[in-house]
Simulated scan of single mutants.
Amino acid sequence: MTQPARLRLLAEDADDLNVIAAALQDAVGKIGDISYEPTARRLTLALNRYRWEAKRGERVRAALQLGSVLKVQARKLRRGAKDAVIELLSVSFEPGEAPGGVVTFTFAGGGDLRAEVECLDVVLADVSAPWSTSRRPQHEA
Rank of each mutant, 00 (worst) to 15 (best):
R51Q: 08
R51G: 04
W52F: 10
W52S: 12
E53S: 12
E53T: 07
E53M: 03
E53A: 06
E53Y: 12
E53R: 04
E53Q: 12
E53G: 03
A54R: 09
A54W: 06
K55E: 15
K55D: 13
K55Y: 08
K55S: 12
K55L: 15
K55C: 02
R56H: 08
R56L: 14
G57K: 10
G57I: 15
G57T: 09
G57P: 03
G57E: 12
E58R: 04
R59L: 12
R59D: 02
V60D: 04
V60S: 14
V60M: 06
R61V: 03
R61Y: 11
R61A: 14
R61D: 09
R61W: 02
R61P: 03
A62I: 07
A62F: 12
A62T: 13
A62Q: 01
A62V: 06
A63V: 13
A63G: 12
A63C: 03
A63R: 09
A63L: 10
L64E: 06
L64V: 12
L64M: 14
Q65S: 11
L66I: 00
L66H: 05
L66T: 01
L66R: 01
G67W: 00
G67P: 04
S68Y: 00
S68W: 00
V69Q: 00
V69W: 00
L70N: 00
K71A: 09
K71P: 01
K71F: 01
K71I: 01
K71V: 07
K71G: 01
K71E: 12
V72C: 00
V72D: 05
V72H: 01
Q73F: 02
Q73D: 13
A74R: 12
A74E: 07
R75I: 02
K76P: 01
K76Y: 09
K76N: 07
K76H: 11
K76F: 04
L77T: 11
L77V: 10
R78P: 13
R78T: 08
R78D: 14
R78Q: 12
R78H: 05
R79E: 13
R79K: 14
R79I: 03
R79P: 05
R79F: 06
G80W: 13
G80K: 03
G80I: 09
A81N: 13
K82D: 07
K82M: 11
D83W: 11
D83N: 15
D83E: 15
D83C: 07
D83G: 05
D83R: 15
A84G: 06
A84M: 09
A84S: 10
A84P: 05
A84W: 08
V85P: 04
V85Q: 09
V85C: 06
I86V: 11
I86S: 03
I86L: 15
I86W: 11
I86D: 04
I86C: 10
E87Y: 05
E87P: 02
E87I: 04
E87S: 11
L88A: 11
L88R: 03
L88Y: 11
L89H: 06
L89M: 14
L89K: 04
L89F: 10
L89E: 08
